[in-house]
């Protein structure tokens, strides 16, 4: 069972969290985005073997959404932060 360090609460069992996927930056003006750009934002997500920046919600805790950098191969949690505030890789 993974242990995730919530930036607000500390280390907690993964059962307190809900997975929220990779997340993606929303086009600033959706109406101006063309179909491929929009489809890219809505549907396309990388599924890397290795480091993956993803969003989790501490749903059974502080209810904050947090950013988690995780190794999908080893399940190591490398870093956690507020959304958008993970250090550069």
């Amino acid at each position: 069972m993974m242990l995730i360090h919530c930036p607000h609460c500390g280390a907690r069992d993964v059962t307190e969290f809900t997975y929220g996927g990779a997340g993606a930056a929303r086009p600033a003006d959706p109406a101006a985005a063309d179909d491929p750009q929009w489809a890219d934002y809505v549907y396309m997500r990388d599924n890397p073997r290795g480091l993956h920046d993803e969003l989790w919600q501490h749903s059974a805790g502080c209810r904050r959404w947090i950013a988690v950098r995780r190794n999908t191969l080893t399940h190591d949690v490398i870093a956690t932060a507020r959304p958008g505030e993970l250090p550069p890789r």
Binding site: G20, G23, R26, L55, Q57, R63, W65, P83
Partner: peptide, 13 residues
């Protein structure tokens, strides 16, 4: 609830 929190905390801070 979770989705609304997502929009507020991730996209519309």
């Amino acid at each position: 609830m979770s989705t609304l929190e997502y929009w507020l905390q991730v996209h519309w801070r």
